[in-house]
Nucleic acid binder design. Structure first.
Lengths: 195, 195
DNA sequence: CCAACTAGAACGAACGTTCGTTCTAATTTA
DNA sequence: TAAATTAGAACGAACGTTCGTTCTAGTTGG
């Protein structure tokens, strides 16, 4: 006997949204399927119908967000030329995303997927991060970036910005991230720039 | 009727060691108290006798490792003068520690304590990290480091090295961390150096 | 009217924790 | 010195709860 809103607002989306919020608020293991069902306003049966099991739900969520991130990187590659501009634009967009969709950011950059998605590779070896490293290798070949191990370069360029993001997600930064963008970027680029 | 080794090898230590390994291998929630009891060779009753509950055990473990980290920082402050030398020595020691005691490192830098120790502040606002930031502020006052927000400075200086550590813990670095030390440190120091 | 979907009560397994007991070694008593 | 007493560390079977999952019945759009 469904109540007010029986209309088909995509059930999958409702469930994924609820899961994202609960997983990032309390963590995967502290969130029960019953919680997700209640928050999403969708029955347990539907959740199992659509996602198979709790892990399948987490996997679907991870896939959705990874795809969104890859899309972002594609867009940036189309709009910019140099490694410098691309990396800077990426950091800018990630800082903005952290303010507008902190849960999505937390789930991608901060959650320990290994603990609940055993077969998933670590985030830093996932496609989006691999794309970033390819980007930097080309930058090195063109002389924009000092010669060094590609892994070291990507780690040193993005390490600072990413730690700023996690600090913000932890709630220990007084101001929104874009406030720090220029200062952080100056440091990050100096770390690897050829000049 | 005790068997071979009934002698008092400190029970607390046995339990803490087992917990550290299991927590970092599988995560806090995937580790049952029964697992810890079995691995440590100590009964469930004893664990509750010593630590109160599972959370108390995690808290004791966290406190032990935090203390060890603070001790390391003290030692470095006594042995070095400049911010440059101190930070470099710290990174060196952390890289070595990651190779010799990867579990301890993973638990300190990588675990999401918030999820199972609700009252603990985030690691980056814990004492050891606060000490590092004070160190850098003094370096800025002395002109070794460019003028900038203290939080940004510490994040940019240590962000790269720390991400290298997590990459190594994830098993995606082919060589031991000290191999990369010079290259990583060169990037890290350039990021914030005054020159 | 049928296939796709939703519903939520019910189930079994596994968890953290408790509790009555045993063991051990030090201390007291005679 | 030998026996009696004591304190608390160690033990592990058992408990109640909660979780992920299943199942059967009902609803709905095309």
């Amino acid at each position: 006997m469904p109540e007010i809103a029986a209309q088909r607002e995509d059930t999958r989306t409702l469930v994924l949204d609820a899961a994202l919020h609960l997983f990032t608020d309390r963590g995967y293991f502290a969130t029960s399927v019953h919680d997700i069902s209640r928050t999403a306003g969708v029955s347990i049966g539907s959740i199992y119908h659509h996602f198979g099991d709790k892990e399948g739900l987490a996997r679907a969520l991870y896939a959705t967000l990874t795809a969104r991130m890859l899309q972002l990187i594609d867009e940036i590659e189309r709009q910019t030329d140099s490694s410098h501009d691309r990396a800077r634009e990426l950091v800018t967009r990630l800082f903005e995303l952290t303010e507008t969709q902190p849960q999505a950011m937390a789930f991608m950059l901060y959650a320990r997927h290994r603990e609940f998605l055993p077969d998933e590779p670590p985030v830093c070896s996932s496609r989006p991060f691999a794309r970033m490293r390819e980007m930097l290798s080309r930058g090195m070949a063109r002389g924009e970036i000092r010669q060094m191990d590609a892994m070291v370069a990507s780690t040193c360029l993005f390490g600072g910005p990413i730690r700023m993001i996690t600090a913000r997600l932890d709630g220990i930064l007084p101001h929104p991230l874009p406030t720090y963008l220029d200062e952080v970027w100056a440091c990050a680029w100096r770390a690897v720039a050829a000049s």
